[in-house]
Design a binder for these strands. Structure first.
Ligand code: MN
Ligand code: MN
Ligand code: ZN
Ligand code: ZN
Lengths: 134, 134
DNA sequence: TTCGAACAGGATAATAATTCTCAATATAGT
DNA sequence: ACTATATTGAGAATTATTATCCTGTTCGAA
């Protein structure tokens, strides 16, 4: 059985507090403020476990690091190609797409995810400023 | 300007031959059959360069490794959660989705992709066999 | 053509993210 | 309290990727 240890509780709480889709390392920094002795391995181990148990969402998209999300219902994301920031996209989930896909593949479909790439407002401004400085 | 060196030519040719969305390392193995002295770094370096120049597609999806695709037009993929195999999905690209997303975000949208996860036919069979053996 | 600068390759080192190992500790159930 | 099991924290190991460095090659101007 999966024990609800202090570590797991705090990891889950801190993840639930933010909307930033933090990486394991970012979460480690947040959690360490409350549990200074926690190990990075513990954070990784438990994020993995909680994702497997459907308690949280593991977002494996572009960029070099995995990100995590306390919102477990399927929804879509946009990632800044400049800084890696990930935000939620408030558009309806395309359930009909799954049926469409199922009709054209011999895979047994588990789920799907849509990821947009773009430039976040902050990076747009920075780029404009850099452009002007040329 | 980007010189078309022998290495680049062979990498591009080998990538074009397959539909398997190979990783850099898989491509390295393919290319080495023709250019046994080529370095893995050269493969990485040139895949990156060619992706930047729009000659090929870099697929950053789930799984631990980046994959590459000679088909540059946007299209969608399905990845086997068991073995990591990636296949094309033959469903139309949702261009209207981009407009929808643009309306709800302050990001400047560059592109999007859809990734399904599922179980490939081979893994379905293997799992069924393992299930039966229990 | 010849010369030099820029380009590119191969070998290898370095980095980054993640996973593994293992002894020590905590916990639940009896 | 006792025992079996689960979990932790520290650190080593692994994996994928990128950077460095030196050498050779190529392009293009003189
Ligand atoms: Mn989200
Ligand atoms: Mn493809
Ligand atoms: Zn940004
Ligand atoms: Zn499979």
């Amino acid at each position: 059985m999966l024990r609800l240890t202090t570590q797991r509780q705090v990891i889950l709480e801190e993840l639930s507090k933010v909307t930033s889709h933090p990486t394991a390392n970012e979460l480690y920094d947040l959690v360490r403020k409350r549990l200074p002795r926690i190990g990075l391995g513990t954070v990784y181990r438990n994020l993995e476990l909680m994702a497997d148990n459907g308690m949280i969402l593991k977002i494996e998209v572009g960029g070099t690091q995995k990100r995590f999300d306390a919102t477990t219902e399927n929804h879509y994301h946009i990632r800044c190609a400049e800084c890696g920031k990930v935000d939620d996209l408030d558009i309806p989930v395309l359930n009909n797409l799954v049926a469409q896909a199922a009709a054209t593949t011999s895979y047994q479909i588990i789920g799907h995810h849509v990821e947009f790439t773009g430039t976040c407002p902050a990076c747009q401004q920075r780029l404009a400023r850099e452009q002007a400085a040329q």
